[in-house]
């Protein structure tokens, strides 16, 4: 019984903190100019250092956690390589980058996230090496944090578990999209209207393509969750 509860808790957080993405959410290789590529990479460093510190603590507690963490990392990667159902017939991929955060503390997820994103770019050509920093920042740092925060907040407010999961994943997604749009707008301000015009353009495009997907993702996550509770 104890094992079952543990499993349940792990699953809960996997999907709560799994921001979802389509392939189009990864900023592709070569898209960001050198300056921005460096800047976003540097922005990730403090989070990665925190993550590494936490990782060492976890390993110090029990080295068997290495295996579990690696298995979870592979699970997250595989999720991101799967096509999830979507109405339009286009395919989208979930990215459970937040996996393991609660098992091992939220900061670890940046480490797991950057490895998964690196493999995604090298093995699936989703994203890129020079944009790894920017993608890590939006998908492995900001997105999961927001989802986690939303989940905790809603839980406190006494929302039903399905609603918590739905909101957490859907909002986590949306924030990730927003960060991506922000990154793009900063790098490519509109020729006429500048940064704000550019941001609204990118947000506009994401709103059209990603909002429905965020909602689907939220629904699927909530569904997975209910399936688990039934067990």
């Amino acid at each position: 019984m104890k094992a079952k509860i543990k499993l349940f808790i792990i699953m809960a957080f996997v999907f709560v903190m799994a921001p979802v993405t389509v392939q189009a959410m990864h900023i592709m290789e070569g898209y960001l100019p050198l300056g921005w590529a460096i800047l976003w990479s540097v922005a990730c460093i403090p989070f990665l250092i925190m993550g590494l510190k936490r990782l060492r603590e976890i390993y110090g507690a029990s080295s068997t956690n290495k295996m579990l963490l690696a298995l979870c990392g592979a699970f997250v990667f595989v999720l991101s390589a799967l096509k999830i159902p979507s109405v339009t017939g286009s395919c989208s991929h979930p990215t459970g980058v937040g996996l393991g955060a609660v098992m091992f503390g939220p900061s670890v997820m940046s480490i797991l996230g950057i490895i998964v994103l690196l493999f995604q770019s090298l093995l699936l050509a989703h994203g890129g090496l020079t944009t790894l920093g920017a993608n890590t920042f939006s998908m492995a740092i900001v997105g999961p944090f927001v989802a986690y925060g939303v989940y905790k907040f809603m839980k406190k407010k006494g929302a039903s578990i399905g609603v918590c999961v739905f909101l957490a994943t859907a909002l986590g997604d949306l924030v990730t999209y927003c960060v991506t749009a922000f990154q793009l707008a900063l790098a490519y301000p509109d020729q006429v209207g500048g940064f704000t015009a550019s941001l609204s353009k990118f947000l506009g495009i994401f709103a059209l393509t990603q909002v429905p997907l965020a909602i689907i993702e939220g629904l699927v996550s909530a569904l997975i969750f209910t399936v688990l509770i039934e067990n």
């Binding site: 590494l52 690696a70 298995l71 990392g73 699970f75 990667f77 595989v78 799967l82 490895i115 493999f119």
Partner: peptide, 27 residues
């Protein structure tokens, strides 16, 4: 690159193929 990260990469890489195959079979 820190050893801990490389270790995770090596292990994750090994497991990816196992789970991809399983996911395909389940589907």
């Amino acid at each position: 690159i820190p050893k801990e990260i490389i270790e995770l990469m090596v292990l994750i890489y090994r497991f990816i193929f196992i789970f991809l195959e399983e996911a395909k079979e389940i589907r």
